[in-house]
Design a protein around this nucleic acid. Structure first.
Length: 331
DNA sequence: AACTTCGTCAACCGCCATGTC
DNA sequence: AGACATGGCGGTTGACGAAGT
């Protein structure tokens, strides 16, 4: 497994792509599209496997890539999406036009995790580190009492603790709505059931996507004392309203995106409400998701699953080609 | 200047899901 | 139904350059 059969047939090149290879691949896809990836290297005259070509295209050659450093807004959005989705990089990337899952994953591992820790936030659980440690200790204690409990997961497994969409777990949203009530964060916990619906423990819908925040006091987790948290973290600025993950609200993606009219179709943005964003994402990740639902970046038109949409996508592909022509005028 | 450490990022690997025969 | 091919995803690795000693 792992290596596809095409990789064994001949000695294929590995490692970094040369400009010549890039040009061959670019030229080929510009002219013919990629079709079946496994046939691309042969048709394009490349000594690479199809998988490698696909990766190169998606992560580097695709014309709609944004490139450059991530903006503060993008970073904040990634953090917020990660809190909801965990390491589902492709789903996170789908919310960031022009960014690839690989890029976002790299950013998270090299930069954002560290930033969150510096702010006193556990990048795995997105809770204050002290609380995470308490919970971990509690977990370990209960594990020692009960051998059947799941073992603690690695650093890269946030979903197993609080954000597992496949099991009944609670999701915790410490939310500080204004600077004046900073010491009294609202807490909202949700059961996420296997059918991916959000509800209270009484199985009633916790909120309507169109409604304001809803809370269930009966299921509130232990309150986070933000003031004590602030004293632990030198990065916490008490005079600034922070969002749920300790980032200043002033540079929160939701606020600026609202101003800029980006993400306008997202209720979360319209309401600056992470709960609504979760609902939107829930909708998106729901198993009943239609191919054309909430798909900000229709990347390529050749997916067999989407043949019905081929004509629609082909026009977008044409735009891509145009961009390609602009970017690579010599082709 | 030489060496080491660290951070970043492109690319690969292994696995899973899905489609096809 | 099962084998195989392929696409896609997330984790990991290794090359490379910058910063530090």
């Amino acid at each position: 497994m792992g290596r596809h059969s095409c990789c064994y047939k001949q000695k294929l090149r590995k490692g970094l792509w040369s400009p010549e290879e890039d040009e061959k691949l670019l030229r080929h896809i510009t002219k013919y599209g990629h079709g079946c990836w496994s046939s691309v290297p042969k048709q394009a005259g490349l000594q690479r496997c199809g998988k490698s070509c696909r990766l190169r295209w998606i992560n580097y050659l695709r014309p709609d890539l944004k490139r450059g450093t991530f903006s503060q807004e993008e970073e904040n959005l990634i953090i917020e999406l990660h809190a909801v989705l965990g390491n589902r990089w492709s789903q996170i990337a789908a919310q960031l036009p022009g960014r690839t899952d690989n890029e976002i994953k790299n950013l998270w591992n090299s930069c954002l995790k560290k930033k969150l820790r510096q702010r006193g936030i556990d990048p795995v659980t997105h809770k204050p580190l002290s609380l995470s440690n308490d919970l971990l200790n509690q977990n370990e204690a209960s594990n020692s009492m009960s051998l059947k409990s799941e073992s603690p997961k690695s650093d890269m497994e946030p979903s197993s603790s609080t954000f597992n969409f496949n099991h009944n777990k609670h999701i915790l949203f410490p939310h500080t709505s204004t600077s004046s009530d900073l010491n009294f964060p609202l807490h909202m916990a949700y059961d996420i059931h296997q059918n991916h619906t959000l509800s209270t423990s009484s199985n009633q819908p916790l909120f309507d996507i169109n409604s304001e925040y809803m809370m269930s006091s009966s299921i509130l987790p232990p309150t986070i004392d933000v003031s004590s948290f602030a004293s632990q973290s030198q990065f916490w600025e008490p005079n600034i309203t922070h969002n749920s993950w300790g980032l200043p609200e002033s540079d929160c993606i939701a606020a600026s995106a609202k101003e800029q009219g980006k993400w306008g179709e997202c209720d979360y943005v319209q309401n600056q409400n992470p709960i609504l964003m979760l609902a939107a994402l829930q909708y998106q990740t729901d198993s009943s998701l239609k191919p054309d639902a909430l798909e900000p970046i229709p990347i390529l038109p050749h997916n067999k699953k989407h043949q019905d949409e081929a004509s629609q996508n082909s026009s977008m592909f044409s735009k891509d080609i145009q961009k390609l022509s602009e970017a690579f005028g010599h082709i």
